[in-house]
Every structure is written in C-alpha cells, then in structure tokens.
C-alpha cells in the first residue's frame, strides 16, 4: 500500500477550526513516520481537489475532517466532497478515516462496496465539548482534548505501522480513559457526550490492513 496520505482540513466554523488544529497534529505524526502527506487546507478542501488527487495519485490513506451526514463527508463551507452513490469509488484501495458526523453509516458501507479497504468513522453525529475561554487555542483546550485525543491516538498508531484494528482499539481505549477522567472530575454532562461518541466510533472493512 502506498505510504501516502490525503488530508482535508477545512476551517470555516468553530467545529472545523478545532478539527483542523487537531488534524494538523495527526499530519505531523504521519510526516514524522515517512508518510508523504498531501494536505488540502482550508478552502482547498473542496470536491474538485479531492477527486483530482484521488484520481491521479495512489494514496494508501485518506483522512477527512469536516461536517457530514449518513451519505457525505463535507469540506470547506460544507461542500459535499465524498458522496455515497456519486464518487465513493474514489476511496478505492484506501484506508479512510473520516472525522465527520454519521458518514460511517451509509457512506462507509458504500465505500467498502466500491473497493475501499477500510472505513473508520462515526455512525452518529460526532460531538465534543469545548472551553470557550480556550477556544483560540484548541490544542490547549482540555475539554475538547477528552473528545479529540482519540483521533490522534488512532492516526499515530496507523503512522507507526499498526493495523487498523490495533489503532482502533487504542483509540477506543483513549475514549474509555476520557470517560474515566470525566467521571472522576464529577462532570456528568461531559460523560453523556463522550459515551455517545464512544458508541458512534466504528471501523468497517478489512481492519487487519495497515498502511
């Protein structure tokens, strides 16, 4: 599998601003482990660019950040960039990780049917808490970290050569740790959102594969 990764990092609202900050950390893990990264940053995270790169270069991994629904992952300004029934075949032969609401539900299955090796993502809305007083420094936001750290754990493990299954288990473990931290801090409202994400986080396809 080519050690090359395509990443989308839109940044047009508070949610994508946070995802971009945490996503860039994941990109660094990949680069530190000799994975060639093509980043579609901010307004470059559009359908035309995504399709063009996936059509013209062999990528082993696709890392998508943005809003979504059961059938789409979205890019800059919520433009659908991968759409079930239209272009999911672009993910053929890749391990795809989409931090995007609900896309693992239909798009994940459609992608695998169309030849994607794996689709890791969320089968429900992805939610996270944030500390308004830290919102200009997403990586220092401990509230957000409880929800987003697992995404970096997953990407770090993949970058180091773990299988999707191993990386997924580590990421789930990270979410369990976050649940314990939230419980011990006595903040039960955070627990509810964390548990939601924990059960929404799924991995489909050949999870024995690795980059």
């Amino acid at each position: 599998m080519p050690k090359r990764m395509l990443v989308t990092l839109p940044d047009h609202d508070i949610t994508t601003y946070y995802l971009r900050a945490w996503g860039k950390k994941a990109v660094k893990y990949a680069e530190d482990h000799s994975i060639e990264v093509t980043s579609l940053d901010r307004d470059k995270a559009n359908r035309k660019n995504v399709e063009s790169y996936l059509s013209n270069l062999p990528f082993g991994m696709v890392f998508l950040n943005g809003h979504g629904d059961e059938n789409t992952v979205q890019g800059y300004n919520n433009e659908p960039i991968i759409i079930a029934g239209k272009n999911e075949s672009k993910l053929k032969s890749t391990i795809t990780y989409a931090i995007s609401c609900s896309s693992a539900m239909n798009l994940g299955d459609a992608s695998i049917k169309a030849g994607a090796i794996c689709y890791v993502g969320y089968a429900q809305d992805f939610m996270f808490t944030l500390d308004e007083s830290n919102s200009t420094h997403p990586l220092e936001d401990k509230l957000a970290g409880l929800f987003l750290e697992h995404t970096n754990i997953f990407m770090s493990a993949i970058a180091k050569g773990s299988s999707v299954s191993e990386a997924y288990d580590k990421a789930k473990g990270s979410l369990r740790e976050s649940i314990m931290v939230a419980e011990s801090s006595g903040n039960r409202t955070i627990l509810s959102w964390l548990l939601w994400d924990y059960y929404a986080f799924v991995a489909k396809g050949d999870i024995s594969s690795r980059l």
């Binding site: 949610t15 809003h67 979205q74 996270f128 808490t129 500390d131 308004e132 039960r188």
Partner: peptide, 17 residues
C-alpha cells in the same frame, strides 16, 4: 442535567454548531 454544565463550556453538535 444541562443545568450542571459549567458556564464556560460549549458543545459542538455536528453541523449545527
């Protein structure tokens, strides 16, 4: 349950904000 949320906390809910 929402009442016990800290005042400085926000929740990002999918595409809603």
């Amino acid at each position: 349950r929402l009442e016990i949320m800290p005042n400085n906390m926000k929740v990002s809910i999918g595409s809603y904000g």
